[in-house]
Structures are given as C-alpha cells and as structure tokens.
Design a binder for these strands. Structure first.
Lengths: 118, 118
DNA sequence: TGAGTATATTCTTATCTTCGAATATACTAA
DNA sequence: TTAGTATATTCGAAGATAAGAATATACTCA
C-alpha cells in the first residue's frame, strides 16, 4: 500500500507542478468557477487553460460539473488548499531566513559597500 | 510577489513529483541519513539516487552536509512533512469514498454477480 | 604518495510536458 | 435546422525529465 500512496502523492504533486495550475487552484479556493471565468482571470489561451484543467481533472485535483453550456470547476478536497497554505508559510519563512542571513553578512563585513570590487 | 510564490510552490511540487523522491523524503522524515544509507534502503542505482538527491537539493527540499567521506541529507523544513501527512489523510479519505461508492452500487444492484456479462 | 570508498557529474536515449494552432463536440437560441 | 457560444481534444515542435553507463571528484587510510 505504501507504494500506492507514494504513487498517489506524486500524481498530486505532478498535477500542481506548474504555476498556471497553481493559479487555477488558488482561484478556485473560495468556490467553484466556470472555465470561462478562469480563462478570463488567468488571461491565457482557451486551449491552454482547457489542457491544464484536463490535467487537474486527471490527477483528481478538481472535479467539474456541466451546467448547460458551461463547465464549473471545484477543488476536490480542502486538503489541497491546506497544502498550498503550508507552502505559503514555508515560503515566507525561507524569505525571512534569507533576509536574516543577509543582515548577518552585512554586520560581519561593515566596511563593504554596494558595488565594491571583489 | 504572488507570482514568485506560485513559482516557488511549483518548484517544490516539481521536486516531489516523483515516487523515488517522495520515498527519499519519507526516509528522511525521522532525521538525517547518508546518501549511502538512502541508496541501500531504496535499492536503486547509486547514480540514479544521486541525481534525485541533486533535484531535491536544487528545489530546496533537502539540505546536505558533508562529514568526511559521506554526505548526510536532511529535510529542510518540517512543513514539507506536514504536506505529505495531509496528502496521506487525503489518500485514505479518497479510498474510503471509493469503497463507499462501491458499496452503494452493490446495494442498488443486489442481483448482479462478479463476472456477469454487460 | 597510491589504493580504495563515497558521492557527483556527464552523456545518451527514451519518454513526458508545455504551448499554440487547428479542429471537434456540446449546448443554446433563433 | 442553422449560427453562435463554451469547452475539449488532437497534433506537432521545443524543451524538460528519467534512467543507466561511464567517468570524475573528494575523502580516508596505509
């Protein structure tokens, strides 16, 4: 089972391993939207969006329902939003530690100036 | 900044979008291990493991430190383990809902047998 | 120094991913 | 039915990724 679980996880990660698809998931964060709305908000080609949506469907990240002419998309499980939130915190933590490291460096070499030669 | 954040997230997801790399991260869950130990536990080629480790380093998922002859790997941030745990819960939830759906189907068609023709 | 061990890199080949362009399908309204 | 709108699929090119084989680098010990 452990192997199936790893397969499953890597499928999810693959599904999210693209900035456009992350943008889609973030847009869907507060509820369902139609493909057309997503396309308008993303500002990308219809075909391209449709392909990314197909990936998200295939990886079980979103579900869709058809209403007349339109297709509405919805995130399949809140867990995925949690995942994105954790990574946001991680991102800012990383940023902070980078900033602190730079401050540290600046303190240790107080004489250096921007543009100084190596 | 929002764009940088999406880039960052998709980098992380890309790093984890492979079952072998997920296995590595899971092995590192409880603490650092040397490359050699990882290779032994994974049962894969040395060169292959080394490449996956290079990806994990490049995507900022692990950090390494060298001790003499060996290189020890460590997960860079606990947040990533949280992410894997969330997905594990998600996985089992999905499994449950699939099982329930199958039970439902079985209840609705009590006369059908395994192997019955379509 | 030289031999042996641990790990990384490079190269090649096969396979995936992404994008845009073109086309197809499904639905609505007249 | 036909025209129009919304969405999906297919195809081809460019680039990225994965695996094994061969080789290189870095370290230890004698």
């Amino acid at each position: 089972m452990t192997d199936a679980l790893r397969q499953f996880k890597s499928q999810i990660f693959q599904g999210l391993a693209n900035p456009t698809r992350i943008a889609i998931v973030e847009l869907l964060r507060t509820g369902e939207l139609s493909a057309g709305t997503l396309i308008a908000k993303l500002g990308i080609e219809q075909a391209n969006a449709s392909q990314h949506l197909a990936v998200l469907r295939a990886k079980q990240i979103v579900v869709s329902r058809k209403v007349g002419n339109q297709v509405y998309y919805l995130i399949r499980d809140q867990a995925l939003i949690e995942v994105l939130d954790i990574l946001r915190r991680y991102f800012y933590a990383q940023l902070n530690s980078t900033v602190n490291m730079l401050k540290e460096v600046a303190r240790e070499a107080p004489k250096s100036r921007a543009g100084a030669r190596r």
